[in-house]
């Protein structure tokens, strides 16, 4: 019989608000994402020297992950993320830099962020995680796929815990919802519970 797993912690970043386990931890009226995430980074005392070199998707993912990983001793923590827009925000920037031969200036610093899994690399570096990574693209948040994949990693002992969720950045709209699946925790790990936590802001 399959072992029951639990959702230990969860967090959400969207529409100017950041919450952890349902409690608001940061709020800002900033309308630009870059200003909002900069304020959050400072207020939440996140410390990562590369932060300001990262693209928006990585900033969003790193701040969300930090809420759940800062006090987390477990390092065998798989990262299973998903979104809708992949790295398109940065892809468009790279495309702009090569669109016209008269203003052709591709930059390695931009190009490297044209992959969605780069944010998993940033989180792994900051938290010293040598763990399983996977980045999926779906048309919308899909609890079922994340649920099955996290269970599979835990059942095969590929990880002790799994940091799962959704980090999407597209046309200045941002939405992050991450949760930790573990052997102990507050909520039973189920598709219904994941959807419920995602739908309640």
């Amino acid at each position: 019989m399959a072992t029951t797993h639990y959702i230990e912690h969860y967090c959400r970043i969207t529409e100017g608000r950041i919450s952890k386990n349902g409690t608001l931890v940061f709020e800002s009226g900033e309308t630009e994402f870059s200003d909002f995430i900069k304020s959050a980074y400072k207020t939440l005392r996140i410390d990562y020297s590369k932060f300001f070199k990262m693209d928006s998707l990585s900033k969003l993912a790193l701040v969300a992950a930090d809420l759940l990983l800062l006090d987390e001793p477990e390092k065998n923590m798989a990262l299973v993320f998903s979104n809708r827009a992949s790295s398109l925000d940065t892809d468009r920037k790279h495309q702009q830099s090569i669109q016209d031969s008269e203003s052709y200036y591709p930059s390695p610093a931009v190009f490297v962020y044209t992959l969605p899994n780069i944010c998993l690399g940033e989180i792994s570096i900051k938290h010293r995680l040598f763990s399983e990574n996977g980045f999926f693209i779906f048309n919308r948040f899909k609890a079922g796929n994340l649920f099955d994949y996290a269970n599979s990693l835990l059942a095969m002992q590929k990880a002790e815990k799994v940091l799962c969720g959704w980090v999407d950045f597209d046309c200045e709209k941002y939405d992050a919802f991450l949760y930790v699946v573990a052997k102990n925790g507050t909520f039973t790990h189920s598709k219904e519970r994941i959807n419920q936590l995602y739908q309640t802001l």
Partner: peptide, 28 residues
Amino acid sequence: HDAMVLSNACVSGVLAIATAKRFIAQGT
């Protein structure tokens, strides 16, 4: 079912094989 798209840089192809196995193992 909807397609699952895996985009994990240059390991995507091997990871997709591993991922397919994991979904099969899980009964999906």
